[in-house]
């Protein structure tokens, strides 16, 4: 057997394993969890279940407000993330990443909150140490303030139903006030 034959068979074997792993990982099961955690070290097993089983039916909003040492609290300010698209965005759409990042962060936070509620009593106090939470905090911490001498900042994640307003907006998470540098 030549080196080329060995290589060819190895590649075919690799493709076969990759394909089977992809099939398994489309389902939620222990095998899929095992594969993703211990086998897919390079993160190359794709997930093809787009917009399903839960379709993305909410717009997410990130807001913040400040408080100073005199306990004066400013109004909520929204970060511009869900901006309207332009006509050329079907070709070039640089702002889609921010929306996707925020949506992914929200989904991560929601999953973490649900897990903490099951695992520990009052475990949500640990939420502020999770990466998604810190990512949000890091993003809003340098934004301009609407009040004089702000000392603390709080953020809120909210969701709305978009153009048809089928549901009233609701909040997903309101953080504690964090001290600004």
């Amino acid at each position: 057997m030549t080196l080329q034959s060995i290589y060819t068979l190895s590649v075919i074997g690799f493709f076969s394993i990759w394909f089977v792993c992809t099939v398994i990982c489309q389902f939620k099961g222990k095998s899929a969890i095992f594969l993703r955690r211990y086998v897919d070290l390079l993160n190359i097993i794709p997930l093809w279940t787009f917009f399903a089983p839960q379709p993305g039916k909410s717009d997410y909003h990130l807001l913040y407000r400040d408080k100073n040492t005199d306990e004066i609290i400013g109004e909520w300010t929204e970060l511009e993330i869900s901006v309207e698209r332009n006509w050329f965005n079907f070709i070039w759409n640089p702002q889609k990443r921010k929306k996707k990042i925020l949506a992914d962060i929200v989904q991560s936070l929601v999953a973490i909150i649900a897990r903490y509620q099951k695992e520990k009593e009052d475990a949500r106090k640990f939420l502020m140490y999770t990466l998604p939470y810190v990512m949000i905090l890091n993003t809003i911490i340098q934004e301009d303030s609407k009040i004089k001498e702000p000392f603390y900042r709080q953020f809120m994640l909210a969701e709305s139903s978009g153009y048809l307003e089928d549901r009233a907006p609701s909040f997903i998470l309101v953080s504690k006030f964090h001290q600004l540098n």
């Binding site: 917009f51 399903a52 379709p55 993305g56 039916k57 909410s58 717009d59 997410y60 869900s82 309207e84 929306k99 949506a103 139903s161 978009g162 153009y163 048809l164 089928d166």
Partner: peptide, 11 residues
Amino acid sequence: AIRSIFSTRTY
């Protein structure tokens, strides 16, 4: 589902 998705500003 499609109406829900297309109703969002995101998608």
